[in-house]
Every structure is written in C-alpha cells, then in structure tokens.
C-alpha cells in the first residue's frame, strides 16, 4: 500500500502540479510565451468556436507531447522538426478522416480548425521546449496545462469580442432591444482581427499589473 501512495505522490507531486498551473498565469502560452497568436485571432470573434478550439488544442497538445516524449531518445536532432510536424499532422489528419467517415456533422464543424491546429505554434513550441527533454507523464501534464492556459485567454478574448461586437454571448442576444432603439450600436470594429490584438494587449496589461514579476525591463 505504501508503494501505491508513493506512486500517487509522484504522479501529482508539487512539481507536476506546477506544470499544470503555471501556464494559466506565469508562463501563459499567449501572453507570456507569445505562442498561438494566429489562431487566437482567427477563432475569437465568437465564443463557440473559441471553446471548440480550446478543447481541441488541449487534447492535441497533450497527446502530441506524450508521443514525442516517448520517441524523444530516438529522434535525430537534425530532422527533429520534420519528425514533430509529421507526427502532429498525421495524428490530426487521421482523426479528421475518422470523424468525416462516422460523425460527419462534428467533422464539418471541426474541419475548419484542422489546419489551424496543425500549424498552431503552441503545439510545436511545447514539443520543442518540453517534450523533447522530459518524460511522458510530465509532458502530458505540460500539454494539458498549456492547452488550458491558451483556452483561458481565448475564452476571455472571445467573450469581450462577441459581447461588444455582436451583442451576444454564445449566440444568445444579451443586449436588450430597447438599447438599440435608444441608439446603442454593436461595435463592428470588435469583430475585426486588429481589435483582437488590442484586446490581448489590454489583457497583458491587466495580468502584469497584478503579476509584477512579468513586467519587462527595457
């Protein structure tokens, strides 16, 4: 029994918990590591695609991290980028093909994201920076943590963009009709990609105001 406890402690040691928690704030993939910006701009005009994307990226990062971590000792460094990309792309495409064959409706909604997932720099970035040098289990946690950190920011951006740009949340209209009659208008600028950048800028501002360690020195 004591062996079992030791095993569990090893699984969720404080170091491993950190792997899960840090990406949510201190090493957030978007606001600190600057990874995965393109997809953050592309899917955050509405809340729904942002959530779908957050879930898919979390799963893919975790699985890809584990696979690469298992293979890490055999991969020749010179061709590691190709190996990583081929592994990720093959995984994602095969899953997409299976979805297309058996749950066509789901696949239709997700296929938009397939390209975005494969080229998402978070996945490549974590493979390169973490999975290549760590064991499978920590790599798995790292993947989940980074996926969640990424998803968190995505959902915050999408919340504000949808609320101010389309006047709705998750497709439900929130702004009462009377507001529009009084002259309130949805801000069309919010759904354009440049505003996503500015929203991220503001999020960084707020985050660093509270987490002083992250402030950059000139």
């Amino acid at each position: 029994m004591s062996a079992e406890i030791r095993e569990r402690e090893a699984l969720f040691s404080s170091k491993n918990i950190k792997l899960l928690k840090n990406p949510l704030n201190l090493s957030n993939p978007i606001t600190v590591q600057v990874l995965g910006i393109c997809s953050a701009l592309a899917v955050t005009a509405k809340l729904e695609p942002a959530i779908v994307m957050a879930i898919s990226v979390t799963l893919v990062t975790a699985v890809a991290n584990v696979v690469i971590s298992v293979l890490r000792n055999g991969i020749p460094p010179r061709i590691r980028i190709i190996v990583q990309l081929v592994v990720v792309a093959t995984l994602v495409i095969v899953v997409d093909q299976i979805l297309k064959a058996f749950v066509y409706d789901v696949s239709k909604q997700l296929s938009v994201f397939v390209g975005l997932i494969i080229t998402n720099c978070i996945i490549m970035g974590r493979l390169e920076a973490f999975a290549m040098a760590n064991k499978p289990w920590p790599s798995f946690l790292d993947g989940i943590g980074n996926g969640l950190g990424y998803g968190l920011i995505l959902i915050v951006i999408a919340f504000f963009r949808e609320l101010l740009g389309s006047g709705s949340i998750y497709g439900f209209n929130l702004i009462p009709e009377q507001f529009y009659e009084l002259g309130y208008k949805n801000n069309g600028l919010m759904i354009l990609p440049p505003m996503a950048l500015i929203v991220v800028g503001v999020i960084i501002w707020v985050q660093r105001y509270y987490t002083r360690d992250l402030i950059e020195k000139n």
Partner: peptide, 8 residues
C-alpha cells in the same frame, strides 16, 4: 505604463 511595456 510599466505593465504594458514590451509585449503589451
């Protein structure tokens, strides 16, 4: 402003 410096 300090928190906005750099990336923000």
């Amino acid at each position: 402003p300090a928190p906005l410096r750099g990336l923000g």
